[in-house]
Amino acid sequence: MIYHIQQTTSTNDEARDARYRHGDVVWAEWQSAGRGQRGHSWLCPEGLNVTYSAILEPTFLPATEQFLFTEVAALSVVDTLGEYGIEARIKWTNDIYVGDRKCAGMLIEHDLRGANLARSIAGIGVNINQTEFDPSLPNPTSMALASGRTFDRREVLERLVDRLMARYAQLEAGERETLQRDYHERMYRLGTCHPFRLADGSIVRATVEGVRPTGELQLRHDDGTLHEYLFRQVEFLIEGRDTPAGTPAR
């Protein structure tokens, strides 16, 4: 069931209420303290986009395989955009890009019971009808900008939820290889060489080769060596946004 509320601190906070059960979705018009990855805030003008949290209870999934849940959530957004004729890619781990611009992001939080997941909340924000953005944002876009039209937000949200549940059904049915293959094929910058910033601040040029089932990004450096990185150990550099001088993207 979709619960449409006017305002909350963040939909992930609201979704923690025990009254929400498996399959429920909390959709808020305004978040006073929306959260994104890396501790960033998530700002969403009222009436233009959708910010929602889906509550799921994948009690069958070991905590060591939780990246599969990330794949489910990311693929559900890419699937939906594709239904509207918008080609999107997944920028590891779960930002959704159209070209070199971010159209959607998410924050996934898990509660554990023993060695398995107990309750998972996928907080997702999708830019739908917004066409003007705060200039401090590095590279935003929206479905409207990508397609040249506006959308019924409720319809888009219902499709997003439908696709999420379809991908979740694959996870529940044990179709791990399908999810991993589909995520891999839709990775942003797959097979192309670009600059990345490492945790120590150094810049390397590398090619995205894939992602391990446990979530590590696989990059082949220019010297031919293959390296694996966890979240926060590596950062994509986007041409025109933060590519350092003297390091052209290609």
Rank of each mutant, 00 (worst) to 15 (best):
Q218P: 13
L226W: 06
R181Y: 07
I203K: 04
Q218R: 08
R181W: 07
Y183D: 04
E228K: 10
R241F: 01
T225C: 06
Y188W: 11
G210F: 01
L198G: 14
F231N: 08
R197K: 11
T243Q: 09
Y229V: 07
E177P: 06
L230C: 07
G210Q: 00
G201P: 01
H194M: 11
E239W: 05
L179M: 14
I203D: 04
R241P: 02
R232V: 14
Q218G: 14
L190M: 02
T247R: 04
A173P: 13
G191Y: 03
G174M: 13
F196L: 05
C193F: 09
V234G: 14
R212K: 11
E216F: 07
R241M: 06
A199L: 13
L219N: 01
Q233G: 11
Y188T: 15
Q180K: 05
P248C: 08
R189D: 12
G201N: 09
V208D: 00
Q180A: 04
Y183R: 05
P244D: 05
D182G: 05
L217R: 00
D222L: 01
G174Y: 10
T192R: 14
G224L: 12
G215F: 04
G174P: 03
L198I: 09
A245W: 06
L237N: 04
D200E: 10
A173G: 15
G174A: 04
R212C: 03
D200K: 05
L190Y: 02
Q170K: 12
H227T: 15
D200R: 04
D242M: 06
G201F: 01
C193N: 07
E209K: 10
R197L: 06
E235G: 04
L219V: 03
S202N: 09
E172N: 14
R232W: 04
P213D: 00
D223V: 11
G246A: 12
E235M: 14
L219H: 07
R181K: 10
D242N: 11
G246P: 01
R205G: 08
Q170L: 15
E235Y: 11
A206R: 01
P213V: 02
Q180S: 02
A173V: 08
A245Y: 10
G240F: 02
E228M: 09
L198K: 05
R212M: 14
E185V: 12
H194G: 15
A199N: 04
G210D: 02
G215K: 01
R220H: 09
P195G: 05
R212T: 15
F196D: 08
R189H: 11
L217G: 02
E175H: 15
P195M: 05
T178V: 07
D223T: 09
T225N: 12
L171Y: 02
Q218S: 09
S202V: 15
T214I: 11
H221S: 15
G210Y: 00
R212G: 12
G215C: 06
A173D: 15
Y183H: 02
L226I: 05
A199W: 02
G224V: 10
R176M: 15
T178G: 09
E216R: 06
V204L: 00
V211M: 02
E175T: 03
